[in-house]
C-alpha cells in the first residue's frame, strides 16, 4: 500500500472538518476523492501533506508515519501536492518557478538534470522560460504547476481540484496529463468536483460526506448505486 489514511480527524480552530475519514491509495493507482462542498476533500489533502496537523488517526506513506511531519519532509519521501489554484509564483519567471520545484534537492547537478528532463518533456515551458508565470494562460499555468511538482520525481501526487476554474477545452488536457503521469508509474489522489471526469479516469473512488466516508468502490459500482447518483452526482 502506497498511502493509508485511517480514521483521520482534522480541522481549523474549533471547526473539526474531518471526522474519521479513511482512504487508501495503492501504488500506481488514480484514486478519486469526491463529495459535496465542505465534505473535507481539501482538508484531507492538506492534512496528509502536513499543512494541517492531524488531531487523531493515522497517515502512512510507504511505511512512514506522516503525522507531525512538515511539507518539506513529506516531499522528501516522494509525495508532492498541487494546490487548487496551482500555487505558482506569478511574479517569477517560468524558469524560476520550475527551479523552486526542486528546492529540496541539495545537489545543483540533480536540480539541473531534473530541469532538463522537464524541459524535454514540456517544450512549451522551455519556450516560455523567461516569461512571468502570471502572464501564461490558465491552461499553461496548470501545466507549469504539474511540471513543477514533478521536479522531485514523486511516487504519489495529491491534486486538489485540478480542473477548478478552467475553461472546458483545458479540462480534457489536464486529464490527459493525469493519465499520462499515471502511466509513467505515479499514483495520484485527486480531489474533484468534476465527477464525470474523475469517474472516467480513476481506478477507485472515495465519496466523503461531512468529513466521513460515505462510499467507496470502483467507478462502475458508483455509477450503479442509485442512492449515490441521487446524492452526489446531481441526478434527480
Amino acid at each position: 500500500m502506497s498511502l493509508a489514511i485511517e480514521a483521520l480527524h482534522a480541522g481549523y480552530g474549533d471547526l473539526e472538518i474531518l471526522q474519521g475519514a479513511s482512504i487508501r491509495v495503492a501504488p500506481g493507482q488514480i484514486v478519486g476523492l469526491i463529495g459535496p462542498n465542505g465534505a473535507g476533500k481539501s482538508t484531507l489533502l492538506k492534512t496528509v501533506f502536513g499543512y494541517l496537523r492531524a488531531r487523531a488517526g493515522r497517515v502512512e506513506f510507504d511505511g512512514h508515519n506522516l503525522v507531525g511531519r512538515r511539507p518539506d519532509q513529506i516531499l522528501g519521501l516522494g509525495m508532492s501536492y498541487l494546490a487548487q489554484t496551482g500555487g505558482l509564483f506569478p511574479d517569477m519567471t517560468v524558469h524560476e518557478n520550475l527551479g523552486l520545484g526542486g528546492f529540496i534537492l541539495e545537489s545543483a547537478r540533480r536540480r539541473r538534470e531534473a530541469l532538463d528532463e522537464l524541459y524535454a518533456r514540456f517544450p512549451l515551458l522551455h519556450e516560455r522560460r523567461r516569461q512571468l508565470a502570471g502572464s501564461l494562460s490558465g491552461g499553461e499555468q496548470r501545466i507549469l504547476a504539474v511540471a513543477r511538482a514533478l521536479m522531485v520525481r514523486p511516487r504519489l501526487m495529491l491534486l486538489d481540484e485540478p480542473t477548478a476554474a478552467l475553461a472546458p477545452r483545458f479540462i480534457d488536457r489536464v486529464y490527459e496529463t493525469i493519465v499520462a503521469l499515471n502511466q509513467s508509474g505515479i499514483a495520484l489522489l485527486v480531489a474533484e468536483q468534476n465527477v464525470e471526469m474523475i469517474l472516467a479516469a480513476a481506478h477507485h473512488v472515495f465519496v466523503l460526506d461531512l468529513g466521513q466516508n460515505a462510499f467507496d468502490g470502483a467507478p462502475a459500482k458508483l455509477r450503479e448505486s442509485a442512492q449515490i447518483r441521487r446524492l452526489y452526482l446531481g441526478d434527480a
Binding site: Y51, D72, S80, G87
Partner: peptide, 8 residues
Amino acid sequence: DAAQSVGI
C-alpha cells in the same frame, strides 16, 4: 502556502 508546497 505555495512556498511550503515546494518544501520551503
